[in-house]
Design a binder for these strands. Structure first.
Lengths: 224, 224
DNA sequence: ACAATAGTGTCTCTTAGACAATATCGA
DNA sequence: TCGATATTGTCTAAGAGACACTATTGT
């Protein structure tokens, strides 16, 4: 019996100027040496306690980043997706701020707008599309997009992040009502976003208990 | 490097008297010989075109059933879940009617109410809980539960299926309004559920184009 | 004062749920 | 006719979106 090539791939998503971008790396080795691909690697049974650990390790090793949000997407498998043979990749997606990617300063990590996903090695383009679809669906009824903001953000900023992810505008009053109901944010005392010629916006942060959690929206965001 | 044991497991769900049940089989071989476990088996790179094919094959081989709905759940992995070594199982779930399970007449297939999931070998209890959670979430905003009905069903029957899956009652008028909006069902001309001492209920079926598809509910079912 | 955006009040429209009326069967 | 459940009509209540008003900054 042929053996199966077991890997993980990570779709690291961030917002750059209101558009979703995915982190890609130039491949060092064959197959597809030199092509821009998702950070990925073998699952190492000797060191990884499960595929999630493998994904976190691969992400850290290849990009220098530890993401506060890393969720399994699904597995992709088959004889043709990897020229080396029958392979199975457990795909994950992670959300971070563009600041975090810049702060680690890995010049080999490139950000590619998801609107310009052309050809990618393996079935990585499918994996990215699948990750974006999952992100959009979850964003309709959860607090997931807060991971695309930093630790502190204004309500208008958070709304613009939702709008960028969902690709449609949201009613301002309704959005604030939802946030009130969710009871997930707290104002940072005395902290405002200054420096622009308008009323400064209050900075908020996730309430302490909720770090790393998702808050679900009753009845969704009703967009559309 | 140790090699990874690659398998698929299938959570076959059905409704028996308004309660979700999962199909389990007595294991023929070690590990856990004699225990009741999910239908599962190795991915066979020589014959399977991907993990989904492997799941369909395993389900057919072990239970005699080909399900109209078979969706990947996620993968479960780690060094401890299988005593043979580091393993990775791609889990799937399928929905069928209890009739279909009975009609194939495999006496080795048992139905276990999910309220009485006690110990199961491997991490199969986790997999089942994960499948039920996915089914409930999807049922809130999609037509998924129609796969738990047969090809023809009445509106009150479909409502009772939703209620059984979700574990809560749904407003009758709202439910019918949603079904109207979804525009997914058509009455079977002249077909009614007869034989009870009340007004006969119209039998419906999925509209032709929608076989095998899911229809998404705008704004969900707003239960709760 | 003006431009710009933050934040709030409130009206209207849509939609969900409650309730009840009508329909149609078997006994 | 009665009991039972299907199916439909309609009123009420909750929630979403539109709009406009106030607040607070820099220029």
């Amino acid at each position: 019996m042929k053996s199966i090539i077991c890997t993980v791939d990570v779709v690291l998503l961030t917002l750059v100027e209101q558009e979703l971008n995915v982190a890609v790396l130039k491949r060092d080795h064959d197959p597809f040496k030199g092509a821009m691909a998702l950070p990925g690697g073998y699952i190492l049974p000797d060191t990884d306690n499960d595929a999630q650990d493998a994904a976190a390790r691969v992400l850290l090793t290849k990009t220098g980043i530890t993401s506060p949000y890393l969720e399994q997407l699904r597995s992709f498998s088959g004889p043709a997706r990897d020229p080396r043979g029958w392979s199975l990749s457990v795909a994950y997606y992670a959300l971070v701020t563009a600041d975090l990617i810049e702060s680690v300063g890995r010049k080999d990590v490139q950000l590619l707008p998801i609107s310009r996903l052309k050809t990618m090695p393996f079935d990585h383009a499918d994996i990215v599309r699948s990750a974006v679809e999952r992100l959009r669906n979850k964003s309709l009824y959860s607090s997931l997009p807060v991971y695309l903001c930093g630790p502190r953000f204004t309500i208008p900023k958070l709304q613009s992040v939702y709008e960028a992810v969902l690709g449609e505008s949201i009613n301002k009053v309704s959005f604030r009502r939802k946030l009130d109901e969710l009871d997930m944010l707290e104002p940072v005392p005395g902290a405002f976003e200054e420096g622009r010629q308008n009323r400064p916006a209050q900075l908020y942060r996730l309430k302490g208990k909720l770090q790393g959690d998702l808050v679900l929206v009753e009845r969704g965001l009703n967009s559309g």
